[in-house]
């Protein structure tokens, strides 16, 4: 019972924080609230037994992302301007999508149901066999590194690619490409197909 109450309280706080993020115009406050939102999400993951996920969310969401966002605000300015167009159409789209999704939840198994299909497929095998096959108490680590190693290799490659892309985008000195942008008239390309369209 107490767990249910904590669950409901944390979820309500998350909703309130998200609405505050949507409504505030000061981007500094928005970034700070998004750190708080991540911390609430991490607490929520502890309640839902996902300790590894909570650990990651607390370190990443409340830590690194907040630092990165503040670094960007220092470069771009921290006031958001009021948009000129009316938000009526986005509101209609969002309400319709949300209603459709809520309608869909009535077909979902109840929260915490041990016999839900998602809990019956491969999870029992991992929980029952992994200790004999891999020998680690932490099933999440066994599945992450061994059973689903391909998946994790892909994810690590995505992180590598993102780091390389950030290097390409903002790694050079500022204004390196200014010369290219200012002289578009110079149409001598060293291509071998002549270059005349």
């Amino acid at each position: 019972m107490i767990i249910t109450l904590i669950d409901i309280a944390l979820l309500t706080f998350m909703g309130a924080t998200a609405i505050a993020i949507l409504r505030l115009r000061s981007l500094f406050a928005v970034v700070m609230l998004s750190g708080i939102y991540s911390l609430l999400a991490a607490s929520m993951f502890v309640v839902l037994d996902a300790v590894d996920v909570a650990f990651t969310e607390a370190a990443v969401g409340a830590g690194i992302s907040t630092v990165l966002m503040i670094a960007v605000l220092a470069l771009t300015g921290e006031r958001e301007r009021t948009p000129s167009h009316t938000p009526l159409l986005p509101m209609v789209v969002v309400v319709l999508t949300g209603a459709a999704l809520i309608y869909a939840t009535f077909d979902m198994p109840a929260f915490g149901d041990a016999n839900a299909p998602v809990n019956l497929h491969v999870a029992p095998r991992y929980l029952n066999e992994s200790f004999a096959e891999v020998g680690l108490p932490n099933v999440v680590t066994s599945v992450l590194a061994s059973y689903r190693g391909y998946d994790t290799l892909g994810e690590v490659t995505v992180i590598f690619t993102a780091a390389v892309a950030v290097m390409l985008l903002i790694g050079g000195r500022k204004g390196d490409d200014a010369g290219i942008k200012k002289e578009p008239a110079d149409d001598t390309e060293p291509d071998d197909d002549g270059g005349t369209a």
Partner: peptide, 20 residues
């Protein structure tokens, strides 16, 4: 991380945050 919560992803972020 093999025995309790944790692993490479979390450790990497925490190690990086020390430098940050």
């Amino acid at each position: 991380g093999d025995f309790g919560p944790g692993g490479g992803f979390q450790a990497g972020v925490i190690f990086g945050s020390a430098f940050i």
